[in-house]
Amino acid sequence: MKKIVIIGATSSIAEHCARAWNRQTDVHFILVARNIKRLESIVRDLKVRNPRVKVDCCSVDFMDASAIQNLADDIAKEGIINVLLVAHGALPDQNEAVKKIWLIRESIEINAISPVLFAEAFASHMISANSGSIAIIGSVAGDLGRKSNYVYGSAKSLVEHYIQGLRHRFAGTDVDAIIIKPGPTNTPMTAHLNLEGQSLASVKSVAEIVVQGIDQKQSSIYAPRKWAFIMFIIRYLPNWLFNKLDI
């Protein structure tokens, strides 16, 4: 039975990833959320979709480093973890955040510090077991800073560099570190944005790509895949041209 730990399991992408794994095989999910009550409907859903699935739930303060470490230790004690998916995040309104700078601190805490704490808390357990994958959901916004969302993007960029370091540390072991970079996706997190005219990817299709990428142990997963190409171009634009773009 494949054991998958999902942090921020109420997030829409995480929920759809769980559904995708649930279709594949017999899975034991350990779902972690801030509010355990919000997991109830997700657990019931997974059980109807696959009556053989095993699901455990727990809650923890996402900013409390020692509580996170204790949780990781407890879960690791129960046996080998195949996948850790760290999926939580919050998309701040860039215009609001530059006016109220405490929103910037909140964004960096929830989008960067908290995911890193979770990954680190599990990393040494995975090295001891010499197996498993740690995947964090970053964002295409982390590839480079843009005026429209650099508060969010810079936090996601920290996560990406953290994963890069982790991957370096894991070299020579059978543990993998994976960064997932979704493009704009149709989720409750993006629902309040005025994204009219932009084509948002469906959360289901993004989750399918993420799960496939994690199963294949790709080190970096763009979802949808076209974003790898788009970001490659944008990253290598000369500054004089990039600075003229309204993106």
Binding site: S41, I42, R44, D45, V48, R49, P51, P188, A191
Partner: peptide
């Protein structure tokens, strides 16, 4: 009120075929 995220199953009894969902 967009309901596309209310897409969870709630209960299914395979013996009787009664399904409850969002």
């Amino acid at each position: 009120i967009r309901t596309e995220s209310l897409d969870r199953y709630i209960d299914f009894d395979i013996e009787s075929g009664v399904l409850t969902c969002e």
